[in-house]
Amino acid sequence: MAMISGENHGLRLAVRYAVLGLIAVIFIFPLVFMVVSSLKPDQQLLLDTKSLRAFLPVGDISLDNYVAAFQRAPVGLFIFNSVLVTGATVLLSLLVCSLAGFAFVFINWTGRELVLGIILATLIVPFETIAIPLLLLMSKLPWLGLDGLTWGWLNSYRVQIVPLVADGLTIFLFVQYFKDLPGELIEAARVEGATWWQIYRRVVMPLSGPILATAAILKFLIMYNQYLWPLMVVQDESYRPVMVGLQYFFQLNRAWGEIMAYLSLITVPVLGFYLVLQRAFIASIASTGVKG
């Protein structure tokens, strides 16, 4: 009996690994194709798509496409812009949305259910429907900078950051996580004399590692992949993010190798960010059941 169940266990494990392996291959092949293609000249790239060679770094392999990509567009600037905008938005979003979640869960105030309901309702409103009114609003907002008071936020980093800091999904994630924290910890801190800010900073935030990682990754991906909004509000190349920068490669003389090189380059920050936070991200999904 023990042997049979041992064999069964081994078989089950083998099937499980086979399925997981297959899924991993399905996910990784497009990435392999992208990186491998970025190393090939256009003609070979297109020819190789007819066979498995498309996934192998064979033939005329070089970094020429990367050099060409840098010549065609200010790739470094675009990546810098995207990392800056995304990084700032993620940090501000974690602060603002966690504070909002804190207020909804721990502080008893009149109308909080209603306000939370309204915020959650925004989850079903597509961004495209508010894009135009938001654009009009942004074009008229005041700003006090080094040049004194100016009007209109278009063509700036802040127009890509501020409107996207708070969102219903991130607030919802924090609300759900905070609800699972033991309420007595908060009450103990209150009795010990802590203010709400001290409770947030000294008790709640140190216990929120998993949800901070989850929210950061989700927000990072959303922000890094922004296309429509920056396309609408940024005409100046110096503020342009990576996704909008992709346009440069679809204009005259379309070169697939260069496109693949550009895509490979802009994938690097995403992978780096994910690798840094992956352990906390997986722990969060495992513990809260939040799906990314």
């Binding site: 033991p182 007595e184 009450e187 103990a188 008790v203």
Partner: peptide, 9 residues
Amino acid sequence: MVFQSYAIF
């Protein structure tokens, strides 16, 4: 206050 669940951080 001392809580039933201890409520230590």
